[in-house]
């Protein structure tokens, strides 16, 4: 990993160590959560890809049937002018879509919903003289086909958006896993080692100081010892006897109170 030696530029203090530790903790939690989100999305994504596959096949069939019903119209009307007339008489879309949203793990997936506006079709009188029944039937067949197409389109949009989102999420997961966590860990390691180093230095210094002190103390002791042995030899042993007596007297009293 790139971050083997990388660490954040911080002063190795105990406060920063605390910060880093909580940051690591946060990163790990975030990583877990994102990982879970990514899994949920991927699950959804797989489901959608499967459904797209199915829907595409279905569309193939539906469109074929629809195309055939148009052939029936041509047969019944017996003239090619009809198609042109239909193209020209199209005015206002009767078949429209509206967009809904669906929330999948915090991602807004739009879903198209087909609806037909009120009012008559632009083509209701098409084929009045002959072929009108075929035209009506063809209209219905195509309306159904378009519904299938709309369904497929919303799956596909979901696919594109999910694809994008999953990429982003995975990028984040990977970034946390492979950059942020190692770097934070490195920083912690670094701070620790620095702190240890300081500790050791301190310890050595203290040791040095205390060694010095001990030496001074020992020297002073020796000096004092020499003085004492010269001046008052028994004084100390007498003091010790008195103290032990006191202690015994205390215990006796307590017993009485109980």
């Amino acid at each position: 990993m790139s971050g083997a030696e990388a660490r954040e530029a911080v002063f190795p203090t105990r406060q920063v160590l605390g910060q880093m530790k909580s940051k690591l903790k946060g990163a790990q939690t975030g990583h877990d959560l994102l990982k879970r989100k990514s899994e949920a999305l991927t699950k959804r994504f797989r489901e959608i890809t499967r459904r797209i596959d199915e829907a595409k096949r279905k569309m193939g069939r539906v469109m074929q049937i629809a195309a055939f019903s148009l052939a029936e119209v041509t047969y019944a009307v017996g003239s090619g002018a009809l198609t042109y007339q239909i193209q020209e008489s199209a005015k206002s879309a009767k078949f429209r879509v509206r967009t809904k949203q669906e929330n999948v793990s915090g991602v807004m997936l739009p879903a198209f919903e087909a609806f037909q506006t009120e009012g008559g079709s632009d083509f209701q009188l098409t084929g009045l003289g002959k072929g009108g029944q075929q035209v009506a039937r063809c209209r219905e067949t195509y309306a159904r086909a378009v519904e299938t197409l709309v369904e497929l389109a919303s799956l596909q949009t979901a696919f594109v958006i999910l694809d994008e989102v999953i990429k982003v999420v995975n990028r984040r997961v990977n970034a946390i896993e492979h950059v942020i966590i190692p770097r934070t860990e490195n920083t912690i390691k670094y701070i620790n080692s620095e702190l240890d180093e300081l500790d050791r230095e301190e310890f050595y210094r203290l040791k040095k100081v205390s060694g010095k002190k001990e030496r001074d103390a020992a020297a002073a002791e020796v000096e004092r010892e020499a003085k004492k042995s010269n001046a008052q030899g028994d004084f100390e042993s007498q003091m010790e006897d008195e103290e032990s007596k006191d202690l015994l007297a205390d215990e006796g009293e307590e017993d009485v109170i109980f």
């Binding site: 019903s69 029944q133 075929q134 009506a136 219905e140 067949t141």
Partner: peptide, 20 residues
């Protein structure tokens, strides 16, 4: 009914247009 002959497949009976 007129519009009931849906789907356009497997229609056994002939439509009125065909008869005409």
């Amino acid at each position: 009914g007129v519009g009931n002959m849906s789907g356009g497949t497997g229609q056994e009976t002939k439509s009125l247009e065909d008869m005409f």
